[in-house]
Design a protein around this nucleic acid. Structure first.
Length: 488
RNA sequence: CGGGGCGUGGCGCAGUCCGGUUAGCGCACCUGCUUUGGGAGCAGGGGGCCGCAGGUUCGAAUCCUGCCGCCCCGACCA
């Protein structure tokens, strides 16, 4: 067991780090806070990208690309936005290096100081709205539905691979609309896409809701969120969709003429999900033996292993199986390497989270069967060669739904109501997860609760039942419950 | 920015307190033989500015000074 990983019970965050490292998903780079995403990890991101991108396209969005660098002055145009991001921006001040006059290497050339400093984008609202000003003149130019796949940089104090790094990869949608109603509809449409993606593709159940003023995106009127629950009982904000009102339109003076030839400010949204989703996938499904990838996100959901080593007959059976799977739209990989033993390969592919493993050995072939093992439950079955493709197809679906059901069961068992502060604290200590409690609606109380328990309000669920109650901390009147949790 | 820890072949570490001649171990790697249905065994082999820069000393991975970097825990955040 050369690559054994720390168990979840022993040290959850070490378990996470071990999985990222030993499943070859990513590693720390030479640059502080920035990661190298390795092929296996990037392959999963590509699967996520492809699916999300097609969902965006189906709903009328198109992709474009905006610059990495943003003039410093742009950032200061929307007051809340500056406040939110100023503390974590990397700034470009010079445009040239020179040989160090006192020795080896290079130094910044003091003569190459930029007249206006540039910010490496922490998000792109400002540069995009500055551009939209020129693109939008009439209601006929609306709606404008644009997305970009990009990297952004936020200078983080503490980083964790995928969950929080200084540079991360994401998509950011930026749309412009002629009415508030339409912009809000867009915000909710995207939230639904995110939730559908999370649940149907990542097999990660999520709560849809709206953020409190305190947790809102800097510059937004409303921030909608999907919140997942990880196996250690902490919540993960997995995606956000913002209704920006006219804040950016006013800051960047983006107006359009309506049908009555009257000028109005444009209504806006922005929305994003990032490589953080990979962290969410890991912490939702994986076990003490390593990563578990939901079949729909696996670059290669099936791996075929010759037992004990390849020969002509096994090669033929493997290639035929690959061809038949391909015709069913299932990608499979044949790990033929004769120098590695099957036991090693079994362990390796389990660690890397491949959903289905097929073992082909002469002993089974003589009986006309092959061995098929599923990663999620570790169960093995012996299936006639001819029936294997269909069996695998059904098995992948079964794994996908089993992962979702298992995660949903866990999540549902970790939503607890609390009506007094003692219970509230006890639930957080013992069971973890979401605590559904009344809150008096003030930021002050929200902050106080966070200070006392480390739990924040993750969201006010959509379609939340209205009920009279008393705030769990202050006893002040409240009309609905909100979801608290400790969060990543 | 506070508190803690760590920088030694690709990876993980020992050695550092108490300086000593050739810097060691496991994994990985290379060669050969034997193996082969759940991380193979044996034999041989290659690979090191001991984080960087100064200093003390006959002699420094080890002691002293300064610097740099990374990880973990907190405050901030997707």
């Amino acid at each position: 067991m050369a690559k054994a990983i720390t168990s979840r019970a022993e040290d959850y965050s070490q378990w996470y780090n071990d999985i990222v490292k030993k499943a070859s998903l990513a590693e720390h780079s030479a640059v502080r806070g920035c990661m190298v995403i390795k092929p296996h990890g990037y392959g999963i991101w590509e699967m996520m990208k492809a699916q999300l991108d097609s969902m965006f396209k189906e709903t009328g969005h198109v992709n474009a690309a905006f610059p990495l660098l943003i003039p410093k002055s742009f950032l200061s145009k929307e007051a809340d936005h500056v406040e939110g991001f100023a503390k974590e921006c990397a700034v470009v001040t010079h445009h040239r290096l020179m040989k160090d006059p006192d020795g080896k290497g290079v130094v910044v050339d003091p003569k190459a100081k930029l007249e206006e400093e540039l910010i490496i984008r922490p998000t792109s609202e400002t540069i995009i709205w500055n551009t939209y000003r020129d693109w939008i003149k009439s209601y006929r130019d609306l709606p404008l539905l644009i997305n970009q796949w990009a990297n952004v940089m936020r200078w983080e104090m503490r980083t964790r691979l995928f969950l929080r790094t200084s540079e991360f990869f994401w998509q950011e949608g930026h749309t412009a609309h002629s009415t508030a109603k339409e912009a809000i509809e867009e915000t909710l449409l995207i939230l639904d896409i995110y939730a559908k993606f999370a649940e149907e593709y990542m097999a990660m159940p999520v709560m849809k809701g709206v953020k409190t003023a305190n947790e809102r995106f800097a510059g937004a009127e409303d921030t909608y969120t999907i919140e997942g629950l990880m196996q250690d009982g902490k919540a993960l904000q997995a995606g956000t969709s913002h209704f920006l009102g006219q804040n950016f339109a006013k800051a960047f003076n983006v107006k359009f003429s309506n049908a009555d030839n009257k000028e109005e400010y444009v209504w806006a949204t922005s929305w994003g999900v990032s490589t953080r989703l990979i962290g969410g996938m890991i912490m939702t499904h994986s076990d003490d033996d390593g990563l578990i990838i939901p079949p729909k996100l696996a670059p290669n959901p099936v791996v075929i292993i010759p037992i004990p080593k390849p020969n002509d007959q096994i090669d033929v059976v493997a290639q035929e199986l690959i061809a038949k799977l391909k015709s069913l739209g299932i990608r499979a990989q044949y790990d033929r390497d004769p120098k590695k033993r099957p036991g090693f390969k079994f362990a390796e592919h389990e660690l890397r989270g491949i959903p289905v493993r097929v073992g082909i050995g002469m002993r089974d072939l003589d009986k006309g069967q092959i061995e098929i093992a599923r990663r999620d439950t570790k169960e093995k079955s012996y299936i006639p060669v001819g029936g294997a493709p269909q069996y695998i197809q059904e098995l992948l679906d079964a794994i996908q739904s089993n992962l979702f059901e298992k995660a949903k069961k866990y999540r549902d068992e970790h939503i607890t109501s609390a009506d007094d502060f003692t219970t509230f604290k006890e639930v957080l200590e013992s069971n973890g997860g979401f605590v559904s409690a009344h809150w008096d609606g003030t930021t002050e109380t929200e902050k106080k609760i966070k200070e006392l328990t480390k739990a924040s309000i993750r969201c006010i669920p959509l379609n939340n039942p209205q009920e009279e109650g008393q705030c769990v901390l202050t006893g002040n009147p409240s009309k609905e419950r909100v979801l608290f949790a400790k969060a990543y």
